[in-house]
């Protein structure tokens, strides 16, 4: 781990160089992350005659712009890369390096944040212009947003890494991730705020890990919780991060024992 941390600054530099090399593709991918804007248009129209579950038109604007920001700042794509590298056989060469290849993958994903910022910054401007009044006024909650976004990204990354690692045994795992993504889009609050679900579904969704990938940072930005509650939720989020770290570690070790290194 110390060796990986020592090498991490260079990994970030390389990751940034790659993000710049793929800049056009990258920007197109980010602009394609437009689902929150589509949902905003639908719900804003629905809320024209009055608030829905406490969300006015401005409330929906604030929610979905925050959702767009969180999604832009917590993007990860390790599951597709892992699956492709394992199937094509190039993973074998990465595995022979003395640092776990997932470190490099994480650096690649993190190093793209400045590029994501290019798209995220105008969203912040629009958010402040249109829905400033809906945002939290508590500086501590904004401070908590940093570890919450980090936790959300780690959760997203580790879920992908643990599922991608299954390709070491089963050749392909991306369809399993597609299933996860289906649940995640609904239960993380990406498509619909969790407040709009029936109470029973909402109560379950609030305990599941999906919520901590997206909804929790949005809830912080919108000041939905007291300071104490926000801190408790942060602890819960990082407990999920720890859980998925253990799952990834287990899946990795077990996968390597079954790895057949085909394709080379």
């Amino acid at each position: 781990m110390m060796a990986a941390l020592k090498a991490y600054p260079q990994m970030l530099k390389t990751g940034f160089a790659e993000a710049v090399a793929y800049r056009a593709e990258f920007l197109i991918w980010m602009f394609a992350t437009n689902m929150p804007l589509v949902m905003l248009a639908i719900w804003a129209a629905a809320a024209r005659s009055g608030p829905i579950a406490g969300y006015s038109q401005t409330g929906f604007t604030a929610y979905y712009l925050c959702a767009l920001l969180v999604r832009l700042m917590t993007g990860a794509w390790v599951v597709w890369e892992l699956t492709m590298d394992i199937r094509q056989g190039t993973f074998a060469l990465q595995l022979l390096r003395p640092i776990n290849p997932l470190w490099q993958r994480s650096a690649d994903n993190l190093a793209a944040i400045p590029m994501r910022g290019i798209v995220a910054l105008p969203v912040v401007g629009i958010l402040l212009w249109l829905a400033r009044g809906e945002l939290s006024h508590d500086p501590l909650q904004w401070l908590l947003l940093c570890p919450a976004l980090m936790g959300a990204w780690l959760l997203y990354f580790l879920v992908q890494a643990s599922i991608g690692t299954l390709a070491l045994r089963f050749e392909s795992a991306s369809s399993l991730f597609d299933a996860w993504l289906g649940f995640s889009n609904i239960l993380s609050g990406y498509l619909i705020p969790l407040d709009l679900f029936p109470r029973a579904v909402r109560d379950i969704a609030l305990f599941l890990p999906f919520r901590f990938q997206l909804s929790y940072p949005i809830e912080l930005m919108l000041g939905r919780w007291s300071r104490g509650e926000a801190l408790e939720l942060l602890a819960a989020q990082w407990a999920y991060v720890a859980l998925f770290f253990m799952i990834t570690r287990f899946a990795w070790r077990s996968g390597l024992r079954h790895y057949a290194a085909y394709g080379g």
Partner: peptide, 9 residues
């Protein structure tokens, strides 16, 4: 090259 320098320390 630079990446491997860091990885292999």
């Amino acid at each position: 090259f630079a990446l491997n320098r860091a990885i292999y320390d």
